[in-house]
Nucleic acid binder design. Structure first.
Length: 108
DNA sequence: ATTATGACGGTTC
DNA sequence: AGAACCGCCATAA
């Protein structure tokens, strides 16, 4: 299952699982934690993942939820009280964004 | 080894 | 503001 020191996929899941409820991180941020710039790679891993982890806490750098999953993600955000910023009517596609300025999580 | 792909990111037009 | 373009990186074929 692995031939690297630390599986990229496994590492991604670890970092994602480390994000507190009500907070989020961008794909780029997660990649940065892995010491890489492969934001796309991170997204790819989550996409192929079984969806068991808190995938909704990883969003785009512009505050958009995972492509094609805005609906499912929204339920989690409201459940966790994640700061949202509405840009349109509720129920419409791409009607909200996560308030990155307030919800972005950072490790130290 | 080479090519294509994707829950991305940033710049440029 | 929206669309196009290029760069980055880990997989899959």
């Amino acid at each position: 299952m692995s031939d690297s020191p630390l599986d990229f996929a496994a590492f991604v899941h670890v970092v994602v699982g480390d994000i507190p409820a009500g907070r989020v991180m961008t794909y780029g941020d997660v990649a940065a934690e892995l010491g890489s710039l492969g934001a796309r790679a991170v997204g790819r891993i989550l996409a192929t993942s079984d969806g068991s982890g808190p995938w909704w806490r990883v969003i785009g750098a512009d505050g958009r939820p995972p492509a094609g999953h805005a609906d499912a993600a929204l339920e989690h955000y409201e459940s966790e009280g994640t700061p949202l910023r509405w840009i349109g009517r509720r129920g419409e596609p791409d009607s909200y964004r996560v308030d990155l300025a307030a919800a972005r999580h950072r490790f130290s």
